[in-house]
């Protein structure tokens, strides 16, 4: 706790570490030593600032709403029909002839203050101390979906095949082999940039530093690690009378974005 010494932070870290430990213990049974060791190693490290925090930057200027990411994500983990780990929202607004449409890809934000982790009763959802990713250990999860309600971004869902909670895991099986996530790989506009937000030499870090970036639903305080360049914050729910705003998602039966 070198630089952030206020007690709230320390307590938080403490809670996290314990949480992690528990999850890792629960996990070690099958995964063997590798995972256990990996999970515990950086916990001994100092404050968050120096640790790896993987995240994503989505440069909306480059996003053409092509949905390649949506489908690439489906294919990568064989996500069943009716649910999605990542999707693209279309926001259409304006008055003829000044009408516009913008695109907003969404995925798990791998938050630094993840509400999903706090509510998970089993510790199945946890933050990986070595890279800040929020993952679900399906060997522990009971499928109660409490986490899904807690996430302010609606990115969690019940996988109808496994019957466990599911969401974007930042393609952890790819990145640890040195590959970019699947959605990043396919992104036509090269709008999605993946990397270690804390690493000053990484592309993502530099872009975040140089550009005006924003995150979504900041007020919920989860400190997301998915950043956007050129985010349009128009919301169909808060539009004024007479204003035309239409937000469409392609999620099953869910006109609302939650």
């Amino acid at each position: 706790m070198s630089d952030k010494s206020d007690s709230a932070v320390s307590r938080r870290k403490f809670l996290k570490t314990v949480g992690q430990g528990t999850a890792a213990v629960a996990t070690a049974g099958i995964a063997g030593g590798a995972m256990h060791a990996a999970a515990n190693k950086p916990a001994a490290d100092s404050g968050k600032k120096n640790t790896v925090q993987y995240g994503m930057l989505i440069d909306l200027r480059r996003c053409i709403g092509c949905q390649a990411c949506t489908v690439a994500c489906k294919a990568e983990a064989d996500v069943p029909m009716g649910v999605a780990r990542s999707w693209v929202e279309y926001v259409e607004k304006g008055r003829y002839p000044n009408a516009g449409r913008s695109f907003l890809p969404r995925l798990c934000n791998h938050c630094s203050e993840p509400h999903c982790v706090r509510v998970c009763p089993t510790g199945a959802t946890y933050e990986r101390p070595q890279d800040g990713l929020i993952v679900i250990d399906q060997g522990v999860c009971i499928g109660c979906l409490y986490c899904a309600h807690a996430c302010p971004y609606g990115v969690r869902f019940l996988n109808p095949v496994t019957r466990f909670a599911d969401k974007c895991d930042m393609c952890i099986h790819r990145i640890y082999k040195g590959l970019v996530p699947s959605c990043v790989n396919t992104c036509q506009g090269r709008a999605r940039i993946f990397g270690d937000v804390n690493d000053p030499n990484s592309e993502i870090h530099k872009l975040i530093a140089k550009n005006p970036v924003s995150v979504t639903r900041e007020t919920y305080g989860t400190q997301p690690n998915v950043y956007y360049i050129g985010l349009d914050t128009t919301d169909e729910n808060t539009k004024k009378p007479g204003q035309y705003v239409r937000v469409t998602t392609n999620k099953a039966n869910s006109p609302k974005r939650t």
């Binding site: 996990t27 099958i30 995964a31 063997g32 790896v52 952890i172 099986h173 040195g178 270690d196 030499n201």
Partner: peptide, 26 residues
């Protein structure tokens, strides 16, 4: 638990993991 299986396989020969905390851009 696919996560475990995949992670176990991934992390034993981790490329990205090697850089943890070192600040070396991957």
């Amino acid at each position: 638990s696919p996560l475990r299986t995949a992670l176990a396989a991934a992390e034993t020969q981790s490329k990205a993991g090697a850089g943890t905390g070192s600040g070396a851009s991957k």
